[in-house]
Structure formats: C-alpha cells, structure tokens
Design a protein around this nucleic acid. Structure first.
Lengths: 207, 207
DNA sequence: CGTTTCTTTGAGCCGTTTCAATAATTGTGG
DNA sequence: CCACAATTATTGAAACGGCTCAAAGAAACG
C-alpha cells in the first residue's frame, strides 16, 4: 500500500474490511468458493494443505504485512489451500472482484499487485530450494540469520510465534526443529523459551 | 501474449529477441546482474540452485510457453538461480527495463504480467505442498494424472524430456524416480523408454 | 555397430518422521 | 501470587523414505 498514490489508496481502503479471528479459526478452506484476498494486520496466519490421510503440511506462514490468496486475482474462483489463524489475528480482506476492477483503472494498484506477487513468488521459490538443498539445522540457521540484526557478531532473537509454527514454516516436524536447535548448540545457539541467543553469527553462517 | 491488444502486442514483439542455446548451455547464473526475463519457445530449461557443497537442486522446469525470471520485473537486479538449457532450446528474451516501462504505459502488459506471476506462483505453491505431503510414487502418479487426457479409463503418455529431468522437477534423485515407476507397476503403470502406459486411471488416483 | 549417455537395480547409510513418555511453559481461577 | 490444568516442547527408540555409490543394463547417436 505504501506505493499507492492518494486516490488509489483511498479507493483500496473503501473496499477493505477489517476482520478478527481467534486462534485456530479457519478463515477459509481449500476448494471453497473464493471471494476475498487478505492482508495480515496483526498476528500470524497459517496456510496449509491436507493429504488424503489427513496429514497437514504448511505452505506458508503469513505475518503482519503479508498478503495471501492474491494469486486468485487473475484467475481461479476457489481457494487453493486452507487458512487458519495461528493465534488471535486481525486481517484486512478485499473482494477479489472489486480489486480486479480497480487494478484495471488504477495503474498504481496493478503495480502494487505485481510487487506483491513478485515478492511472494521469490519467497516461495526460495522455500523450494531450501527444502531441497538444506538439512534441518541448515534451515534453522538460515531462518535465524534472516531474522537477525545484520550488525555485530552476536545477536538475540525473540521468535514471533510458537516453535511448532516455525517447524511447519520450515517444512519440519516439531521434533525435528527441536533436534535441530540442540544440534546448533555447538555453534553457539542457545534457546530459552522463545528467546534465542546467537553467540557467533559468522559461525552460524558456516553451517 | 494471447491476452494482449494489438498495440501492446506489437510493442512487446519489438522488444523481444529470439535466442538459441544448446544442451547444457547456461543462460545465466545465480547472482549475475539481471538484464532480461525469458519465455521458452521450444525445448526445456532447467532452473536450479547449488548448495555450498556443489549439489544441485531443480527449482523449476520450464517448457514451451513458460516464462522465467519475471519476478525480477518489480525489483531485484540479480538472477536468483541458475538457468540451463536441458536440450536445444529456443527462447524469447525481453529487457527487464523496457518491459517495466511498457507495463507502466500499457494496461494489457501489466495484466499479462499479473497473469504470468499468478500462475507461476500457484504452480510453485503446489510444488511445496507436493514436496511436503507426497511420497515419490505419489508425486509420479500426480504428474502422470496431470499430464493425461481426462477422458477414458486408460491412457498413454510420452514424456517430453529425459527421466532425469522429471526426477529433478519432482524433487527426486533419478534412482528414486526409477524406483517410484517400478512401484507403480502394481497400479497398472508400464514404462518403456519415454512411453508410459496407464492401464487404470482411477486406480492411479487412489495412490 | 560401437560408443556414449541415460536408466535401472542393489546395498548401505543418513536424515526425518512417528510414536510414546517426560519435561517445560503458558494460562487460569482461587 | 501461587497452584493446577492444559498446552507446548524435548528426548529417546524404532521405522521409513530417499540418497549415495557402484555396477549392470538399455537407449540414443553417429
């Protein structure tokens, strides 16, 4: 939204509806008729699919500022995955049809949609590459380094959500995440609750 | 391109350069300064990343009609992965800067970019879900069903590329693909070279 | 027809999942 | 503020799935 001009911005805000969901609420289900796309304002939303045995796999974890279901803007009238509030969550939702129309009129809106889709696509391709190339400790190290102030040789991070959610985001079972953390202890990573201390950032980069 | 109006189409074609590459040629490398995005005209292109041990993982296999490096249109000036011709290949390439400018002027172009990105994003998210939910035989069954005439109870497919490429596309080692095929024999799948016979489509759906 | 490249098969290994039990955290009502 | 309940996280053991390496077999190419 930051890139929108004044008129485009106000027209988007006209369309927006703010919604609240409680932890574990489903925002929509896979296959359901799709009316809206969403932008997270606060909290985290989990996008996942089920296999036919009922096992769940996270596709994406969306936090403040992230949009989801935007790929339905150009085509498709059914949601492609399930979406669940990981905690109490506030989102803005936009009627797909109205945004489609608005993108036709306002160049800024089309441009913002392109930016959304691009960055989302980049993240998703990174995710595939990481899934296919990295072991569990490497994925965790990667995540920590991505969410770490760049400066300094040591750092401290507070996870913004539960470990089980991080596990899903990284494509791991919660137990595998736990074991990955404990294998990173020798690289100077200390975990206490949601607080993670990194003694030596450059050592972590070697993992 | 099919959705472009006459003027938008001709302006895109003005920008396009057709290029040929031989099998194993690199079109670009990860980290290289990015000048173009591409559209495959014939043949197949492999997009892949390396981990620091030099192991390769395919991110995407692009065939005729597929575009790649489009996510650089909105931002980023370096390629995000390596791109290699899997065989003799013809592609059209477009200067990113010129397409960016054109998308500002021509609504059709912006719309087409949105469509490209959307469908690419959908495929990529599907890929993550498949990687995380499905075993090797399930991925192969899924691929066969996706590339199968819908009608009828049996079918015959000719793979458009080498098995090793299909393996990479499905996130498998070639040996794992081979074993997956042989485990699908009991479900009525017969492989002879690139020709794959499916005796019972509905049986395959049960996998 | 021979050479090269690609594919299949076997054996062993590694990493991750699953299941089960214990420990730690978080939230809640007294 | 504490104690209890519920949830979440850790740990161990076993099993599974896919990878790697090596060798044999099949296709493709000239």
């Amino acid at each position: 939204m930051a890139s929108l001009g004044a008129t485009a911005l106000s027209r988007m805000l006209e369309i927006a509806t703010v919604m609240n969901y409680e932890a574990r609420d489903l925002l929509f289900r896979e296959g359901e008729g799709a009316e809206y796309f969403y932008c997270v304002l606060s909290g985290y939303v989990r996008l996942f699919r089920l296999n036919k045995d009922g096992r769940e796999a996270d596709i994406r974890i969306c936090g403040p500022g992230d949009t989801f279901a935007e790929c339905l803007l150009s085509m498709g009238d059914h949601y492609l995955y399930n979406s669940q509030a990981a905690e109490n969550v506030t989102v803005a939702r936009f009627e797909l049809a109205k945004v489609r129309a608005l993108a036709e009129q306002e160049k800024d809106v089309a441009k913002a949609v392109i930016q959304c889709l691009s960055s989302h696509l980049r993240n998703t391709m990174d995710c595939i590459a990481n899934d296919r190339l990295q072991t569990a400790p490497q994925r965790v190290a990667h995540y920590l380094l991505d969410n770490c102030p760049q400066d300094g040789s040591s750092a401290s991070i507070r996870l913004p959500f539960q470990k089980s959610l991080l596990a899903g985001k990284l494509g791991l079972a919660p137990e595998a995440l736990s074991r990955a953390f404990s294998s990173l202890r020798r690289a100077g990573v200390t975990v206490r609750g949601r607080i993670i201390q990194i003694a030596d950032i450059s050592a972590l980069k070697q993992i």
